[in-house]
Amino acid sequence: MSDSLNQQTGGLSDNSETQITRRQTAVYVYEAPVRLWHWVTVFSVIVLCVTGFFIGRPLPTMPGEAIDNYLMGYIRFAHFTAGYIVTIGFIGRIYWAFVGNSHSRELFLPKLFSGKFWKEVGHELRWYFFLERVPKKYVGHNPLAQLAMFFFFVIGMTFMIVTGFALYSEGMGHGSWSDQLFGWIIPLFGQSQDVHTWHRLGMWFIIVFIMTHVYVAIREDIMSRQSLISTMVGGWRMFKDDRPD
């Protein structure tokens, strides 16, 4: 798969004649664990946002006796379980960055010190401001997407996981694993209420990320020169044309 990619890019620099003859339409980008992780994360984050919202702003009071109800308990259980799943998935995803293909590292390592990277970020920005007629082709994430994924998703998720388990440690108690690993977060922010507030802001940060992410994915799927949404389902990147770059 990565061979076919090399063929393509290698072919580009030769001459225009070979490009036209070589049809390169699909590249395997997202390996099965990455795709699985993506959709598990999608599901868990939706659960986390919905349940988290109702933990901060509970639903209207339940009628009947306390013994017959356990709504808040179920909501919190769902939140904590989804939190565990998302965290384990995230750790697994980091592991996959080491053993997976080169695209599995894009999320974590944007090439911030490369001039070419920033030039292409500029190109992407111009594309989004309608100043470029034709977008560039990318097998993996484009540089702007890499930046966004790193700063919104990787940083955002890390923040939510760390603050989330710091809050979780409050219920687990002193000496619990989450207290030992993340308990120090609470005095760092001031006190528990501050961590709650920041965790809440983090939720909105993630929601804004999701909105942008989904919009851009749909838009690129329609307007760019490669497939987006189907790629995260099947793993193959389809290109819509055979022109270079």
Binding site: P58, P60, T61, A66, I67, N69, Y70, L71, M72, G73
Partner: peptide, 11 residues
Amino acid sequence: RPHFDAGQFVE
């Protein structure tokens, strides 16, 4: 606390 877990609140 049982009222919290049950989702029963003073509004």
